[in-house]
Simulated assay, not measured.
Amino acid sequence: MKLIGSLTSPYVRKVRIVMAEKKLDYRLELEDVWAADSKITTSNPLAKVPCLIMEDGGAVFDSRVIVEYVDTLSPVGKLIPGTGRERAEVKTWEALADGICDAAILVRLEKTGAFRKDSERCQAWIDRQMAKVTEGLRAASAALDERAWCVGNTCTLADISIGVALGYLDFRFPEIAWKAEYANLAAHAEKLNKRPSFIDTAPPQS
């Protein structure tokens, strides 16, 4: 399999961590979707990464679909419960974590993107998205409480997803002091960041 992605996308990182936890082999093909010569639309008409190209050439996107698919490819480390309440809880954690990333990326694009002049950037829009990040962190901390894992008694996609979201905030928004406010999330992130799958997929710091 081939995974088209970037080293800085939290959604790509989520897929890469899942692939590592599942011990699946794949080839990472880096793609800059913002480049004028990007070929991403030949695989994903929405021009987004990640995009998984399977052995027969078929394409699977986006990250939520990819991780659900690859979790079925190996019995190693089941990350998404098959049915029931726990499955819904894991997928809700993923939605929450992805939502934090969605809002943070919109803030970054509004602040630094080349699509607007400085005079056109909207502070009200930035504030609205940052409020989603703030509420998302509050909700994640409350839901985790003092538990060792987000759902059940082992690492699942819920933990991976929120760990990736927290890592993205550290990467792009180091000024957000979420660790000081949410000690349980900080401890959880520290634990996850010691896993080889998180270490090997950490975004570049330069």
Rank of each mutant, 00 (worst) to 15 (best):
Val49Phe: 00
Val49Gly: 03
Val49Glu: 02
Pro50Gln: 11
Cys51Ile: 07
Cys51Ala: 15
Cys51Tyr: 04
Cys51Pro: 06
Leu52Glu: 07
Leu52Tyr: 07
Glu55Pro: 00
Glu55Leu: 01
Asp56Lys: 12
Asp56Trp: 06
Gly57Met: 07
Gly58Tyr: 01
Gly58His: 07
Ala59Val: 12
Ser63Cys: 11
Val65Ala: 14
Val67Ile: 14
Glu68Ser: 14
Tyr69Asn: 00
Val70Pro: 04
Val70Ser: 01
Asp71Trp: 10
Thr72Tyr: 01
Pro75Leu: 04
Pro75Phe: 03
Val76Cys: 03
Lys78Pro: 14
Lys78Phe: 01
Lys78Thr: 14
Leu79Ile: 14
Ile80Arg: 03
Gly82Met: 01
Gly82Ala: 03
Thr83His: 06
Thr83Cys: 04
Thr83Ser: 07
Gly84Gln: 10
Glu86Ile: 05
Arg87Val: 09
Arg87Gly: 01
Ala88Phe: 06
Ala88Leu: 14
Thr92Phe: 01
Thr92Glu: 11
Trp93Glu: 06
Trp93Lys: 06
Glu94Asp: 14
Ala95Tyr: 12
Ala95Val: 12
Ala95Lys: 10
Leu96Met: 04
Leu96Lys: 05
Ala97Lys: 02
Ala97Gly: 08
Asp98Lys: 09
Gly99Asn: 10
Ile100Cys: 03
Cys101Asp: 10
Cys101Arg: 05
Asp102Met: 13
Asp102Phe: 11
Asp102Arg: 13
Ile105Val: 15
Ile105Trp: 00
Arg108Cys: 03
Arg108His: 12
Arg108Phe: 12
Glu110Phe: 03
Thr112Asn: 09
Gly113Ala: 10
Phe115Trp: 09
Arg116His: 08
Asp118Ala: 15
Ser119His: 09
Ser119Cys: 06
Cys122Arg: 15
Gln123Ala: 09
Ala124Asn: 09
Trp125Thr: 07
Asp127Leu: 04
Asp127Thr: 13
Asp127Cys: 03
Gln129Cys: 07
Met130Tyr: 01
Met130Trp: 04
Lys132Ile: 04
Val133Ile: 13
Thr134Ala: 09
Thr134Asn: 05
Gly136Thr: 12
Gly136Lys: 12
Arg138Gly: 08
Ala139Gly: 03
Ala140Glu: 13
Ser141Ile: 04
Ala142Tyr: 08
Ala142His: 11
Ala143Ser: 10
Leu144Val: 05
Glu146Pro: 00
Arg147Tyr: 01
Arg147Asn: 13
Trp149Pro: 10
Trp149Gln: 10
Trp149Glu: 09
Cys150His: 02
Cys150Trp: 04
Val151Ile: 15
Gly152Arg: 09
Asn153Arg: 13
Thr154Trp: 05
Cys155Asn: 05
Cys155Met: 12
Cys155Leu: 12
Thr156Trp: 02
Thr156Cys: 02
Leu157Lys: 12
Ala158Asn: 13
Ala158Lys: 13
Ala158Met: 08
Asp159Thr: 15
Ile160Ala: 02
Ile160Lys: 07
Ser161Val: 08
Ala165Gly: 12
Gly167Tyr: 02
Leu169Gln: 11
Leu169Cys: 14
Asp170Thr: 10
Asp170Ala: 06
Asp170Ile: 10
Arg172Ile: 04
Glu175Gly: 09
Glu175Trp: 00
Ile176Trp: 01
